[in-house]
Amino acid sequence: MSLVPLYLRAAVGAVGPRASTLPDTRLEREVDVDRGHLADYARTCGFAVGDVLPPTYPHVLAFGLHVQLMAGRDFPLALPGLVHVANTITAHRPVDAGERLHVAVHAERFVGHAKGAQVDLVAEVHVGGERVWDGRSTYLARGARAPEPAPAPRVAPAEVPGGPAAAVWRVAGDTGRRYAAVSGDVNPIHLHPLTARAFGFPRAIAHGMWTAARALAALQGRLPDAVAFDVAFGRPLLLPSTVELRTRAVDGGWALDVRSRTGTHLTATVG
């Protein structure tokens, strides 16, 4: 499914009256995993090509529904300009590519934020009635206002203390285009320096979910079957870049961060 028309509609509709509260909309789809697509995703993010879905993969299956929901006129925030600030994923068990997935998405927690308003897009994946995967993506609209005040700020995963990097990645200039092709997230800030500049970035920036997936892939073989992955996004990762991954084992799981000379791009815990 191409999300380009939805982005265009959202861009055109960005100006004008909007709803002030969240819609009750719940969007759903049945998905049979396309193994070719799964292999492309795995290759782009650094996972081995196999039968178990990478814990971050269902996010791209739900992402089209996220956009569809946020592009609607009844959604209180304008899609262009929304910033992905945090993401949590819980994979309750390994999900096999041969399983038929039921993906459902809704929005909740439209609340204030120190810099504007934030909203959570919540995705649930069921297999034959069994809940196998949860995702919660938090988006910030700078300068926007929400009906409810800001809650107590969420405790973001901490940075891994200094010391040498576990890995140094040379992130190529086309990373945004490559991840856009497998995720459907064709937000222009990721695609090209020129389109990114139009939105105030000096160069194209990597998708946060690519960086998160790439970091998770670095722990392949070291994760339990059921995974909780909690990510806070920091400074945009400008493309191309050389960045460092730091990992540290903490009570049965891992703390990790991705940083470069320009700052910390993400901090996360996984276990």
Partner: peptide, 8 residues
């Protein structure tokens, strides 16, 4: 396995 590598 057209898309799989030896490593995979």
């Amino acid at each position: 396995y057209a898309q799989a590598t030896n490593l995979d």
